[in-house]
Design a protein around this nucleic acid. Structure first.
Lengths: 231, 231, 231, 231
DNA sequence: CATGAATGAGTGTTCATTCAT
DNA sequence: CATGAATGAACACTCATTCAT
């Protein structure tokens, strides 16, 4: 109640600018907080505060907390797919190179940014917010899977990759990437540096293993081991 | 309570044991609900109800919802490691067989049970429970990693696997398994059946790829591709 | 913040009694406030305060504000119907006497009490709370209409009343009663005493007119005036 | 405005009038919405929208939502009384015919129009707007009562009606009419069509009953029943 | 005059936690 | 030991009102 209690350190004349990309500031603040605390634990008032506006203003731009979240996802993930699909279309190299490029590109544009917190967030909250889960499925997961599948299919068509069930092949590629992102935002951040993973090396190892496996002399696939790859 | 009681001829009903039945029922109920609905969405009253006690009684045994959560985690892990380590010690087959056995065994004893919800729980709440995250690191993650590392090292020693940086090799094996468990408890349960994964096929594909990679003719590792495997 | 700011004048040991008909106090407070300020304008916290409990306690007994309101209606109106129906069943006098009795009895048990504010309240809020309106229809209006219709039918059967369309006959009786109640709780309370109505005289006039009309020599109904009464 | 303006040869576009077009549109929109949704549930933004102006503009003409409400009431009443009084003055028929004419005329010019929502509005909000209630009393209720009283007095003078206390007689006529208007705007619109009232039949029944009452053989008023009519 | 972006107090409802019995 | 009645802080969302432009 005393002036000293004021939590805002600078009274800053809040009306200095006009039409200054208000939604952009809100989306940035929302990404920060959603990634940091999760969807449910993030309070809309805090988002507004961090963006320097009032709670009411937030609802002027986004009709609900869920829509705010969807907008964050669209701005940070969905938009990538158009450029990625274009790149895939015009890519001239081999499927192996394409796969390597895709993984590193994902890391550069998503995995290494704050946006990498979104997949973890979705995993955590999917059960409690079915509508968000459904949105994420259609807006992120299915396009992503389709994109990866295109690469794998090209590799099989060109004879670079073994025939496979693509549904599972896609997850073999995805799982370690998403795991890396989730790890970074949860158990990887705390405690022992023994569990810190260097993304570049992790990615390299992952690609290497995707292409060659663990085996030393990856002799022609032994016929005695029927696998999903032999479809 | 007094020693004199023991002299009484009547076979007094030793109710002291029953004291420990209560927390057990509560922990079981809590595991069910935490896994099913997540930490935040689980109401303590529902836990108490399912355990057949009142809400007040729950707080008699656990000082807070957070402590209940911790207790659930403590009770449902660490248990498997002693038997797994013993099995590894006495395993006589190849490293490849050992790896396959370990993965299927993990699926059977953890991945396919309710306990598989715990990793997801931990990932979700690690940020908000740093202390619990630390506990989980030491009690679960590090022993697990060590166990896997033993298998990989045996494979390299026997010439079955290529030399590798074990820290990353471990995660290459772990990531898809944990991803499967988390997927099962979040985005995999909702929406399109296009994203439903059959665990058996997923595991098989995963092992196949670990051993052979995607490449059709996994010719000897091309020297032009320096990788973490060549250390 | 200073002790002087405390709005509760007496710190009263709030736990002096046990199981003291909590819902009853809440219903009484709710009736007061609903009648005084309307449904929408009444804040549940104020209801709780007036009943001497916390907001949370209110929701312990009533799952929502709407249910609280329904309970108020049930306690103050619906319950009358059973006794009224019983009285009608055992009534031995003429239909005219029955009608007079019913109107005076309604005034005594509802019209002259705070419960008389409920009809006005419903008229005001019906548009904005359709579910409440529906509830009121089934719980109050239809039973009330049925009860009145029984009386009118008996009067027609006994030859005391002219044949009529009962649907409209019912409202001819009801309208002035409800109007009186509504008037008392709105425009009748303010301003000039010129518009103050004495209930007893109003009721008497109303009954007199119902039975005889305005006309001086209510000669046999002139056949040149076809009316709803001649059905 | 000044007389000198009339000398200017150019037919200057007199925009001073347009100033008054704006509030008119706003008042019309407000009447619609207040009647349709009630006072509280009507949002000023919707009023402004329907009038084709911005929310800010509304507050340019009306300092608050309450004042807008008052203006709506002021604009939609008092108008009829001058013509009604004139008609009564020149009416040559019997008092019965005059009464019938007055009721049907009221229905035609008020009851069946949107303006019929105003009495309900006033009843609902009278408690919260004492000042408005007082205004309504003097501007609407008292002139209306006086008008009705003239009719009744003429009927008594001509021997058509029994002597009566006019204050109550007036309400016996008014109550069912106002009730019909309020019913139409609240509980009559929702739910069961069992409670739908056809205005024409209701009015007819009402007039019939006013003139003759329910009784079959309205024999000369029995002297054993002293009533307000016998004053 | 007119706008519409910005505000922030206000409200029904939930739920972890306490404690008298 | 066990209960469950009571609490009250917390939170998303609304909307009348303001004011710089």
């Amino acid at each position: 109640m005393t002036p000293l209690d004021s939590t805002s350190p600078t009274p800053q004349p809040r009306r200095s600018r006009r039409k200054e990309a208000r939604p952009g500031e809100l989306l940035a603040a929302a990404l920060d907080l959603f990634v940091e605390k999760g969807f449910a634990a993030t309070r809309v008032e805090e988002v507004a505060q961090r963006a320097g506006v009032s709670k009411g203003t937030l609802f002027l731009y986004f009709p609900s907390k869920e829509e705010l979240f969807k907008a964050v996802v669209r701005q940070n993930i969905s938009v990538r797919y158009t450029e990625w699909n274009a790149e895939i279309d015009s890519f001239t190299g081999s499927a192996k190179e394409m796969l390597r490029y895709a993984l590193f590109s994902w890391w550069e544009r998503v995995g290494s940014t704050k946006a990498s917190g979104i997949p973890k967030l979705m995993m955590s909250e999917a059960q409690n917010f079915p509508e968000l889960a459904s949105f994420y499925q259609h807006e992120v997961i299915q396009p992503g899977n389709a994109l990866l599948e295109r690469i794998l299919k090209r590799g099989v068509a060109s004879g670079e990759f073994r025939p496979m069930e693509f549904t599972y092949g896609v997850y073999l590629v995805l799982a370690p990437m998403l795991f890396l992102a989730m790890w970074k935002h949860s158990l990887g951040t705390c405690c022992s540096d023994h569990t810190q993973l260097d993304p570049q090396r992790y990615l390299t190892a992952q690609i290497d293993m995707l292409l060659h496996g663990f085996s030393l002399t990856s002799s022609p696939i032994p016929p005695t081991e029927p696998s999903l790859f032999s479809k």
